[in-house]
């Protein structure tokens, strides 16, 4: 149990998937301009990340490795993720329309989100057991959402602040992410 705790702490704080490992900042800068879009994206990411990495782990261990075709892992994983996202979108539209309206616009965006695919591949490369992979995917998604919501909070203050016109938008977003990353980077000593 002890190393799960360490796994969670290191995934959320120490090597935060977004600020230290750089996975998933395509939507990070784009979506974080307003708080509710950030929350919507974060919730969708947690939900899909857990589902995707467990399915990929199962596919790797029960199909790719027995047939010894690990080299095709990239194609298999991304196919699963794309299919999964589309499936979730269709099911959500029918089962929970309000939830769909809140998450809806972000779901297609998630297919190209580097974090989901990155976590799936990392689970295999660090050869985690299923439980470790499951816990790791939850922790990274929580870390991702935390960083996203923190940045969204900060960027909402920009509207009232005095930002030079040319730095407005992406440049200031990136610099803020850098500053936030610095604070997370201070914790590097803790995890393994």
């Amino acid at each position: 149990m002890e190393d799960y705790f360490m796994l969670i702490i290191s995934a959320i704080f120490v090597n935060n998937i977004l600020l230290i490992k750089f996975l998933g900042n395509c939507p990070f800068i784009g979506v974080s301009s307003s708080m509710d879009s950030a929350k919507g994206m974060a919730a969708a990411c947690i939900f899909v990340n857990v589902l995707a990495s467990s399915m990929c782990w199962v596919f790797q261990k029960f199909v790719l490795e027995p047939l010894s075709i690990e080299y095709i892992q990239t194609l298999a994983f991304i196919l699963i993720i794309a299919g999964l996202v589309q499936l979730v979108e269709i099911i959500l539209q029918k089962v929970a329309p309000p939830l769909y309206r809140a998450l809806g616009i972000y779901l297609p965006l998630i297919t190209t989100n580097c974090m989901i695919f990155g976590v799936a591949v990392l689970n295999i490369r660090q050869d985690y057991t299923f439980m470790q992979a499951f816990v790791y995917s939850i922790a990274t998604a929580v870390g991702f959402s935390m960083a996203l919501i923190l940045l969204a909070g900060i960027r909402e203050r920009f509207i009232v602040g005095k930002i030079p016109k040319l730095m407005d938008g992406f440049p200031i977003g990136l610099i803020t992410a850098g500053m936030m990353g610095l604070s997370f980077y201070g914790l590097v000593g803790i995890g393994k």
Partner: peptide, 8 residues
């Protein structure tokens, strides 16, 4: 490979 990917 063909079977796995085709199946998927």
């Amino acid at each position: 490979s063909i079977l796995a990917m085709g199946g998927l």
